[in-house]
Computed example of a mutant assay.
Amino acid sequence: MPHWMSRRLLGLLRKEWLQILRDPSSLAIAFVLPGGLLLLFGYGVSLDARQVPVGLVIEQPSTAAQSFTAAFQNSPYFEPRLYATLQDGREAVRRHHVKGLVVLPSDFSQRIAGASTGSAEAPIGVILNGVDANSARLLQGYIQGVWSNWLQQESDAHGLGLGLVEPVAAEIRVWFNPELESRHFLVPGLLVVNMTLVGALLTALVFAREWERGTLEALLVTPVTIDEILIGKLLPYFVLGLGGMVLSVLMALGLFDVPLRGSFWVLALCSTLFLLTALGMGLLISIVTRNQFLAGMIALLVTFLPAFLLSGFLFDIDSMPTPVRALTYLVAARYFVTILQTLFLAGDVWSLILPNAAALALMAGALLGLSRRLLHKRLE
């Protein structure tokens, strides 16, 4: 690193530390922010999988099938949904309407009866959505728990003792992430975090820095237009964000062996939409606040932290309380995380990609348009 660059870095670090020590708001950040996070983790975010939507396919109704279905309906961990055919259940898993699928074949009662004699055929089949490896493991354990408890109850009810429980095994198949590798789930989400850092946090300081230094007024006396100023400010960060996306994708594919089952061009287009949304959010914050420190803190609270906590990157949105789950629809990262996980692990599932891409396009247009309007008004 050149000598002048090292001195600049040290100067920036010294300036930031002096700003923190001199600004009373640093105390508020030190106490209010941790308190807010504690409330969010304590009440708003749950790592427990409860009321998980699970599909049930009963090919042939019977007393045993009805009893097994009741075991799911009485469990606090599941929200069972009945599907008439296996094809309907598979499509529900593909569209993320349910997290897993339990299939009771037409000869379910006969297989249960044959299990005590050592039959090798599994009485039930289970398909899991393995995009979120941790949720898939939890769901697998919960289904096995319901299965074992139901077998125990059936054995006791028919006076069969424990003999029926041991030879019976569920046949489980995990979709999209068969190895249940957490990195296959986490690495695509890191693209969201990286692009949020470049698009929102850095852009939030662009105009705030100009306001503080008083150089924006001097820029206006030149022949350049407001649109040219906006393009000149945002284009470098746009290029930087796309460069970081390409590097992250190459690392994901080369270092972590994360599969990319969808189209790279669809990935590039959706990344562009999200980056424009992040740039619009950072630009709006920078124009409104006119203060670098305040702009950085607001950007951290409304873009960076939600990208971690409310996007589905780390925590399952379906396990959150209803008010928090409704709040996630305002977080752009939520839509991009869904797109990335779909493209990397499932492929070009248009029923998921198109609605989320449309939401990003709408948010990008609204944020950039509002930023352009506010900047124009404030400069007149």
Rank of each mutant, 00 (worst) to 15 (best):
M1H: 11
W4Q: 12
L9P: 04
L9I: 14
L10C: 00
G11F: 04
W17M: 10
Q19D: 12
R22E: 14
A28C: 09
L39G: 03
G44W: 07
L47R: 10
A49P: 00
R50D: 13
V52S: 13
V57S: 10
I58Q: 12
I58S: 07
S62I: 02
A65F: 04
F68A: 02
T69C: 03
A71R: 12
E79Y: 06
L82T: 12
A84D: 15
Q87C: 00
G89Y: 07
R94Q: 14
V98A: 03
K99S: 12
L101T: 09
L101Y: 08
S106Y: 10
S106W: 11
F108G: 00
I127A: 10
A136R: 05
A136F: 09
R137I: 10
L138E: 12
S148V: 11
L151W: 03
Q153G: 15
S155A: 15
E166A: 15
R173V: 08
F176D: 14
N177F: 08
P178M: 02
L186M: 11
V187I: 15
V187L: 05
N194K: 00
M195H: 01
G199V: 07
A200F: 05
L201Q: 09
A218D: 02
L219F: 05
V224M: 13
V224S: 10
V239T: 04
V239S: 08
L240S: 14
L242D: 04
G243C: 12
L250S: 14
M251P: 02
L253T: 01
V258S: 02
V258I: 11
G262N: 04
V266R: 09
L273G: 06
F274K: 01
L275W: 06
L275C: 04
L275H: 06
G280S: 04
G280R: 06
L283R: 05
L284I: 08
V288F: 10
R290Y: 08
A295R: 06
I298H: 02
T303R: 00
L309H: 06
I317F: 07
V324Y: 10
R325I: 00
A333R: 03
G347T: 07
W350R: 07
I353T: 07
P355I: 09
N356F: 08
A357G: 13
A358D: 01
A359Q: 11
A364I: 00
L368N: 06
L370E: 10
L374V: 11
K377L: 05
K377G: 00
R378F: 08
L379A: 07
